[in-house]
Write a protein that binds this DNA or RNA. Structure first.
Length: 884
RNA sequence: GCAGGGGUGGCAGAGCCUGGUCAAAUGCGACGGGCUUAGGACCCGUUUCCUUUAGCGGAUGCGAGAGUUCGAAUCUCUCCCCCUGCACCA
């Protein structure tokens, strides 16, 4: 009984044992890579460079497997390019700009219990000691500590995933050196006139006199808060007093129907621009913050308005109505104008007579009003003056950006349209805020550049970041002349040397490095970034750099869901990236991410799929090792030699196909070929070849392990070394192409067709005890006929028959059958060579037995038999006789 | 509303650009069988319907409808439904 139990355990643990094996292998090779600095890329003029970037993460919490997808795919790409002999630079940094990190710090300081527990759970992913957890949480009072803690753990996660990153380039967007770079970037944009200033509506806490973000608002993430524009109209109620009516701007072009006010709410009569207006009491403060100061002269309830102005002449409107609480006096002016459905576009030019020109009333639209900050003070919309914008609508900029886009490869190509649309739509974008972490606007330091605007050209900074650090550059000395020199080749080296205090050879090497690594060869990220980040990325590059430094290629992937539902913090179904390397395995994760779906399809993470992938990967490893372990005993007979050649050919073909697929970003199909198809091929070979060819197997295994290494680098590294090979597979070249024998592959396919046919027949014959199958290879003339048909492409059956009468001879009936089948419109038919078909079939009789329930297989040439069935035999599809 | 993407078999998901070899890859599930004392794991087979103790047959079929074509899951048009983004959130 005990034995049974222990057997149970060992069987059940099969999977977990394999996973733990993988984890050990992963840790071992990650250490080896890091010790040998294999991913540190240096300028090398003998090698073609390849600069790939994936957007840096925002360290406000642990990354989850959804984030893991983009980084993994980026890494597969990086590794593949490295195998093509390219000098690959794959750097990484951290984005800490803006308010989220501060806001986390603040909320923890405020002692929000739910929030504190959330962060406790995040920290506990990485730490187990309770005291350490508490201390870490305490340290979060300083926002930088939040960023530091998560950033360092994300580094760990990335390493554990096997990402081939050159960490020397790491920085955060809060670093002074980075700020200097961004300042330069913004001054450049300003010089070009791409940065403008103006007024802009923002969410604003009245009491604190401060702009607020979504994080500052109570329930901000659920309220779906929006700033809405309301058009204003005036409606006379007496000779000198007007109602200030408002209506959402998007329906303002409709025909006005009626005006509604709330009888219980307080309204005011106030003077504005030599007019007297009636508006809600709440609106006065809002308008004051939108640059419209009203002087209140009198207060009155809504219901008093009609009493006071019974003869209200609202000529344009049918009705002035008092509504019971139907009108929220806290929305815009509290005097609602209803309209008929909006007019069609061509009618919209007809402005409503009562519309007050240039009077827009901004207010908040949210699921629940009023909107308050977490501290409880009221949030309104204020219009700030002096807001800085990046003006993407400037014509010359747009057109040069369009040009840059047209020269950028977009994968999948169908997303190009979305880019084009985004480019059309991009206009002025506010680029700075009054608070948060980041770079101050160089020409107006009270503003801080916002997160999306400071991350559009940082790939250039990557190239020099490590050298600036090691050279001990002083951020305040990195004046524009320095950046101009390094990135644009302007100015004199001497001058820059004096200004920065850096050695001239350091400066010169940064310039050389930049020219070597730039442009960005590949930007890999999620589809969601097209409308903003990726578009800004192209715009900024088009603005700053000459054409030859514009981005080469953008590749996109979709998101990851779990068990059919979106992952979200609130659902609690998020899997942190940490769990992958600790509880599953990085190679398994990588394999799943790559093979479970094409890049632009949504990927569903589910336990069944993972388990399945684990057992397939294990099978691969077992079969690989088994193939590697046999020794030659005898000599190869003709059949074995044939099978060996078939095996070598199939592997070679699969690897060549895989390369084409990798090249076109079809990683899923590529790994299908390189791993799973090859696995089947090895298994078939091992099973059905009596004597194996050591050299052939060795060669095939080498190709296979190279072919899978971009996706499962750790296991590949281990198998590489375990099979007596030297060096890191991560630095090996993709296998050289060699010729392969296609005829043998076709021959094998013919055998598979025979198996299918045998099974079809036995199904029909169910109940029969027949166990013997005779396979008859078609007559020679049929092969010749098919070959001719492929060349001749005859237009009709008659033509085909008459032109080939000499080889058809008296077999007219059979021939017309063949012609019918093999002259389908649309192209050639592939048939194996007759000799090979015959040899392959007899070499694989065991395979046929295994896949059918036959126990005797006889292969005959048509000339060796008189059976009637032999007339049914076709090239590539022999006649089959099943008998007892 | 505007813009983008999509609707395929019990489920998930390829195929669609470049129409025929697509009753439609692959995985999961289900069913049957092998191996097992048994379960799990593994292996083999079946998984729209009809016909057939002999394979290369027929029908229906890829959101709905219409069209182009010798031929449509694939091309065109109309309709219905679903998802995503819409700016200061990163």
């Amino acid at each position: 009984m005990d034995i049974k139990k222990s057997m149970d355990v060992s069987r059940k643990e099969d999977n977990t044992q394999f996973l733990s094996y993988l984890r050990d292998v992963e840790k071992k090779w990650q250490k080896a890579w890091s010790d040998a600095k294999v991913f540190e890329a240096e300028l090398d003029n003998k090698k073609q460079k390849y600069f790939i970037t994936v957007p840096y993460p925002y360290p406000t919490g642990p990354l989850h497997i959804g984030h893991g997808r983009s980084y993994t795919v980026g890494d597969v790409h990086a590794r593949y390019e490295r195998m093509q002999g390219k000098n690959v630079l794959f750097p990484m940094a951290f984005h800490i700009t803006g308010s989220p990190i501060e806001s986390i710090s603040n909320r923890l300081k405020e002692g929000d219990v739910e929030f504190t527990n959330l962060y406790k759970s995040y920290v506990s992913i990485y730490l187990s000691d309770q005291e350490k957890i508490d201390n870490t949480l305490k340290s979060f009072a300083n926002p930088i500590e939040v960023a530091n803690f998560f950033a360092s753990n994300i580094c760990r996660d990335f390493d554990a995933l096997g990402l081939s990153i050159d960490w020397r380039h790491k920085f955060t967007t809060g670093d002074a050196l980075y700020n200097s770079f961004v300042s330069w970037q913004f001054r450049k944009l300003k010089e070009k006139g791409y940065i403008t200033t103006g007024s802009y509506p923002i969410l604003y806490a009245v009491k604190e006199k401060q702009a607020v973000g979504e994080d500052d608002i109570a329930g901000g993430d659920e309220l779906a808060i929006e700033i809405k524009e309301h058009a204003a109209f005036e409606a006379h109620v007496s000779k000198d007093i007007d109602l200030l009516c408002t209506c959402p701007a998007d329906i303002a072009s409709g025909e006005p129907i009626k005006i509604t006010i709330n009888p219980e709410a307080t309204y005011v009569i106030a003077s504005f621009n030599q007019k007297k207006l009636i508006t809600s009491e709440q609106s006065v403060e809002k308008l004051a913050n939108q640059g419209k100061n009203l002087k209140v002269t009198e207060r009155l309830l809504g219901k008093e308005i009609l009493k006071r102005f019974p003869t209200a002449s609202c000529a344009q409107y049918n009705e002035l109505k008092l509504a019971d609480g139907q009108v929220n006096s806290d929305v815009a002016s509290g005097v609602m104008l209803e309209t008929t459905p909006a007019k069609s576009k061509d009618l919209q030019n007809e402005k409503n007579a009562a519309l007050i020109p240039d009077f827009l009333f901004y207010d908040i639209a949210a699921e629940k009003l009023p909107v308050k900050t977490r501290a409880g003070s009221k949030v309104i919309v204020a219009v700030v003056d002096g807001q800085w914008f990046i003006d993407y609508s400037i014509k010359e900029w747009k057109s040069v950006a369009r040009e840059a886009l047209s020269e950028t490869k977009v994968t999948p190509e169908r997303y190009r349209k979305q880019f084009n649309d985004a480019f059309d739509w991009l206009a002025k974008r506010p680029c700075a805020r009054e608070r948060g972490i980041g770079t101050r606007l160089p020409f107006d330091p009270k503003w801080i550049i916002e997160p999306l605007s400071d991350s559009t050209a940082y790939m250039a900074f990557y190239v020099v970041s490590h050298k600036l650090k090691t050279a001990g550059a002083h951020p305040e000395k990195l004046v524009d002349q320095f950046w101009d020199y390094v990135f644009l080749g302007r100015g004199s080296l001497k001058n820059v040397e004096t200004l920065t205090g850096l050695e001239s050879k350091t400066i010169e090497s940064m310039r050389t490095d930049f020219l070597y690594w730039y442009p960005v060869d590949e930007r890999h990220t999620a589809v969601a970034h097209i409308n903003n980040h990726l578009s800004f990325f192209i715009f900024t590059h088009a603005a700053l750099f000459p054409k030859e430094l514009w981005p080469k290629s953008i590749a996109l992937n979709n998101l990851v869901i779990r068990d059919g539902t979106k992952m979200s913090k609130s659902k609690g179904n998020v899997i942190p990236l940490f769990d992958i390397s600790e509880k599953y395995s990085s190679d398994l994760f990588r394999l799943f991410i790559i093979s479970a779906g094409e890049l632009d399809s949504v990927l569903d993470w589910n336990a069944a799929g993972i388990d399945n992938m684990a057992s397939r990967l294990q099978r691969f490893k077992d079969v690989f090792e088994q193939a590697n372990s046999f020794h030659n005993e005898g000599t190869l007979d003709k059949k074995d030699a044939l099978l060996a050649e078939w095996f070598a050919s199939t592997i070679e073909m699969n690897i060549q196909t895989a390369k084409v697929l990798y090249d076109s970003y079809k990683y899923r199909d590529a790994i299908q070929k390189a791993l799973f198809d090859n696995l089947n091929c090895i298994e078939t070979y091992l099973k059905y070849s009596k004597e194996k060819d050591r050299a052939v197997v060795n060669n095939a295994l080498e190709k296979i392990v190279l072919g899978i290494s971009p996706v499962v680098p750790h296991l590949a590294e281990e198998l590489w070394r375990n099979t007596g090979r030297e060096g890191f597979i991560s630095l090996m070249r993709w296998p050289e192409e060699s010729a392969y024998n296609k005829l043998l592959i076709e021959g094998f396919e013919a055998v598979n067709r025979s198996i299918e046919d045998i099974n079809k027949i036995t199904k029909i014959m169910k109940g029969s005890i027949a166990k013997k199958v005779t396979i008859i290879i078609a007559d020679d003339w049929k092969y010749e006929l098919v070959a001719r048909l492929n060349m001749q492409k005859p237009k009709s059956i008659g033509e085909a028959l008459s032109t080939n009468a000499n080889i058809i001879g008296e077999h007219k009936e059979e021939a017309s059958e063949i012609v019918k089948i093999f002259t389908r419109i649309g192209g050639e038919t592939h048939v194996p060579e007759r000799n090979i078909e015959k040899l392959m079939t007899s070499a694989l009789v065991e395979l046929i037995k295994d896949h059918t329930n036959m126990n005797e297989v006889i292969v005959l040439d048509a000339v060796e038999t008189n059976s009637d069935k032999k007339f049914k035999a076709l090239p590539g599809k022999p006649a089959i006789i099943i008998s007892e």
